[in-house]
């Protein structure tokens, strides 16, 4: 091996080196210029797509099975708890089941197209409505509505915003990677929020807990 090495060394290295060096020098100037140009171009493309394209690509939009008018129901039924109630064991029933709706909607009672769809497609077929829940937390979360609503006397708006005043259902946006509703992370792609209901991540829970109880709380308070 050392013999071979010596041969290489005594061989043509010098002349080769000269050649390469010349060539590189010639390239050098224009190379840097092109590099800068490419840099700027790539930067711009990536910067813009990261801001504009990415948020749109990240979420898929899904429509609710039919439109639901919260404002109308609140007017007819009263407060949120007339439909979203607590069970006797303290658990929260969440989105009403068909059986509950049928109490009023056994037959079409209004003249909206949505109600007609509801009665025809779900009530008559005895099929639960596959609502897409904007505030659905992942499986690892245990959220006690009774602790917040009864215990801490919080109102629904603090976390859910003014959904009770809405007349139409916005499209449900689902994160393609995580499967979460966009409302959890918040509309703002950086996760900035203006109102307490703009985001529903753990940090938001912790922030409020820290403020109200002086501690973020132990893990098991909200995890299962």
């Amino acid at each position: 091996m050392s013999e071979l090495e010596e041969k290489t060394e005594n061989g043509s290295t010098d002349s080769l080196e000269m050649g390469v060096s010349e060539e590189q020098k010639a390239e050098g100037d224009s190379g840097i210029g092109a590099g800068v140009l490419f840099f700027i171009a790539a930067f711009a493309v990536c910067f813009l797509s990261g801001w504009l394209l990415f948020p749109n690509l990240l979420y898929s939009k899904k429509e609710q099975p039919f439109n639901f008018n919260h404002a109308l129901h609140v007017e007819e039924m009263g407060g949120c708890d007339s439909c979203h109630y607590f069970r006797e064991d303290g658990s929260f029933a969440g989105v009403p089941k068909l059986a509950q709706c049928v109490d009023c909607h056994a037959e079409v009672m209004g003249d909206t197209e949505d109600e007609a769809v509801f009665v025809a497609e779900y009530v008559e077929k005895e099929k639960e409505v596959p609502w897409l829940i904007y505030s659905e937390q992942p499986d690892c979360v245990f959220f006690s509505h009774s602790a917040h609503v009864v215990g801490a006397q919080m109102d629904c708006v603090s976390c859910h915003g003014h959904i009770g005043e809405s007349t139409t259902m916005k499209p449900y946006e689902e994160n393609r990677i995580t499967g979460y509703s966009r409302d959890i992370w918040g509309k703002n792609i950086w996760g900035f929020k203006k109102n307490s209901w703009d985001r529903m991540k753990m940090d938001d829970c912790a922030e409020c807990h820290e403020k109200e109880t002086g501690s973020k709380g132990a893990c098991f308070q909200c995890h299962k």
Binding site: E5, E9, T13
Partner: peptide, 13 residues
């Protein structure tokens, strides 16, 4: 690859 090899160093082929 001799152009990359340190000057005066002896390396195998």
């Amino acid at each position: 690859d001799s152009a990359l090899i340190p000057k005066g160093a002896n390396r195998c082929p």
